[in-house]
Amino acid sequence: MLSRVANNLYWMGRYLERSEHLARYTKVQYFSMYDAPNLQNKNFTLRSIIHMTGIEYDTQTDHLDEQDIILKVGLDPASSASIYTSVFNTRENARSSKNMLSEELWEMVNTYYRFVQSFPDTYFKTRGLYEFTQEVNRHCYSIKSCINQTLIHEFVWAIINLGIYIERIIQILRTIRSKLTDIEILSQTSQNGVLQEYQWTTTLKILNAFDIYKRYYKNQNAAETSSDFILFHRTFPWSILYNLRKIYSLADRIPNWESGHEKLIFFTGKLYNKVKYTTSVEVGDLKVFCEELLIDLNNLNELVTEEFFE
């Protein structure tokens, strides 16, 4: 495969996954302020969204413009951190490697872009956030299903999925980090423990984990068990360990005539086993643990880039 095309497919996967996470984070976080005990402060919620998504916005002001922030996160073509931009980049990367994709897959990606591109701004910022983010997630599920259903499970498929799983772990780690920051802020402002615990509930909801988690842990204290569930669950598709295992097995699908094959297997195997054989007690400071893993993921991204795209 052409190196440029491999690069585009990888980034198609990354942007696709990123758009899904941005949408889910924004939706869950935004609506959490209406469900939170003792009514969570609106500015607190908006700052959390700004922090996690990385949009450019002055968070020091007391007058955060809710509609403006929502619009920047969702539909701002000028913002590199917006959902719009992620979807645009998904589509452009797919377009530049279109001849490697199935027609069904290309049509789905293109339809996804057309949905985002034609969603009306005014409706979005006043009443459309839920509908928009739900649809974004639905499009992403359909596209990922199409990737698995219509491509041969070889190099093209593996490289797109490598992008998806690397981005997913990065987004999970960024979500945890962002929520830990929220908890720190709440504890600094002497907010009650219920509200702090509620941040873990929100985290689980952002990661599609809440319902499954409840069934799995049966009413146990969220703060104690949530991080375990998200980090180490072996079979839950949004846990770090599960996704690292996926990446490791994808490395094995890269044909062995590809120059980076061996290095990728070694690196991903090492990373997977590092997390697999870490106990909850050994994690220590969760924020530091997440930061270290983010560095590992960044190194993995560099390895993939060097070995396959350059």
């Binding site: 495969m1 052409l2 190196s3 440029r4 095309v5 491999a6 279109k98 001849n99 190099f155 044909p255 005539w257 590809e258 120059s259 980076g260 396959f308 795209f309």
Partner: peptide
Amino acid sequence: LVQGDDLFVDNDFVYMKTTA
């Protein structure tokens, strides 16, 4: 589907840059 950057010439033959 290649672009100019994907191709190069070596010893009067044309090659494409691939992952392999």
